[in-house]
């Protein structure tokens, strides 16, 4: 990442934004995580007091679905105001001369976010039953945000239904990438033939999964990565969180490798009062594998296009191979969603 030679402009901006008498940036460091955005840790002295901030800006190449930093900032602010556990949003800067591109600044939150580690290391996250319930509550709070009352006009509304819109969007992404993957087309066609018969719409996070929240030794510290948030079916977030591809080394723990679905669902229902629809969740779990495959291919293409040569991106592109197998296993011609016996306990 290219940092400006001097932090003077950024310090001026922070001073104004924080209404401080003086801001001095003592150290900047790239943070791990954020495959699509770049996160920079800013260790500052604000009026002589140590303060750690996180600056979030676009990577050199991004992917089509990703929201702008300005939109993401507005969404995090809405979530913060609703009581969702997110890093406190501090300010957004459009002026590209300050740090080489638009960016948002948040208070730094302590914790570990790396999905495989969070799943495997039971010293993290506190009591796992409580954590699974709390994640359900957090998701329900997101879904209760009155987005229509907020100035979030950029969100739009999926038509004719969230499921139909999402399937069409993935097809469009694959077409734009110029990739021909029969297994993904098979899965998309299967979804099209098994669309859920619901059309409730909420503000959905759309990347609420293990790996995108942080925990410390006691429990949850932050829900991160709001760049895909949009209006969608509430069951889509539940399906994304529970999809097998996000359970890492614990496929048996169906709520994101953290705990059982029952505890996660309890927490969700306790706050939202909404019934879980098992068939719709299954639909969205299969969709999750297809969407993740599409995102992985886009990540691989960032490398292949030469815009951002990276071994990590190249390997991410290959994850699509594994996801396609899961998709085929779930969509045999003999399987119809509304006849399936699915365990949601």
């Amino acid at each position: 990442m290219n940092y400006p030679a001097s932090n003077a402009r950024l310090e001026d901006w922070l001073k104004h934004m924080l209404s401080a008498g003086s801001v001095s940036i003592r150290e900047t460091a790239s943070l791990t995580g954020g495959a699509i955005q770049e996160n920079v840790l800013l260790d500052c002295l604000v009026d002589g007091v140590e303060m750690s901030l996180v600056l979030r800006k676009d990577a050199e190449a991004t992917i089509a679905e990703s929201r702008s930093r300005e939109e993401e900032f507005a969404l995090v602010r809405a979530a913060f105001d609703q009581g969702v556990t997110v890093p406190r949003p501090l300010g957004f800067c459009k002026d590209e001369t300050v740090f080489g591109g638009p960016f948002a600044v948040f208070e730094k939150v302590e914790g570990i976010g790396l999905g495989p580690k969070v799943v495997k290391d039971l010293s993290l996250g506190g009591d796992r039953v409580k954590l699974a319930r709390e994640l359900g509550r957090q998701m329900a709070r997101i879904h209760s945000i009155d987005y229509a009352a907020l100035n979030l006009d950029f969100l739009g509304s999926p038509k004719p239904s969230a499921a139909h819109f999402e399937v069409a969007t993935i097809r469009q992404s694959l077409d734009q990438l110029g990739v021909n993957r029969p297994a993904l087309e098979w899965g998309l066609r299967w979804l099209e033939r098994n669309l859920p018969q619901t059309n409730e719409l909420v503000l959905a996070h759309r990347d609420f999964r293990t790996g995108n929240f942080m925990v410390d030794n006691d429990g949850l510290t932050a829900i991160l990565d709001w760049e895909f948030a949009a209006i969608s079916d509430p069951m889509s977030d539940i399906g994304w969180f529970c999809a097998e591809c996000w359970r890492f080394s614990r496929p048996d723990l169906e709520a994101g490798g953290i705990g059982s679905r029952a505890y996660f669902y309890q927490g969700y229902q306790e706050v939202s009062g909404r019934e879980i629809q098992p068939d719709a969740v299954t639909f969205w779990e299969i969709f999750a594998h297809i969407r993740w495959a599409s995102i992985a291919l886009q990540q691989g293409m960032r490398h292949l296009s030469g815009k951002q040569r990276s071994l990590e991106l190249a390997l991410t592109g290959r994850i699509a191979d594994q996801l396609e197998f899961s998709i085929l296993c779930a969509t045999a011609p003999t399987k119809s969603l509304y006849r399936r016996e699915v365990s949601h306990a």
Partner: peptide, 18 residues
């Protein structure tokens, strides 16, 4: 079924390569 089985076999192999 024929196409499904061919795709299933192919994706299983690719998944194992990955």
């Amino acid at each position: 079924r024929h196409l499904y089985e061919a795709l299933h076999e192919s994706t299983m192999l690719n998944a194992r390569i990955f």
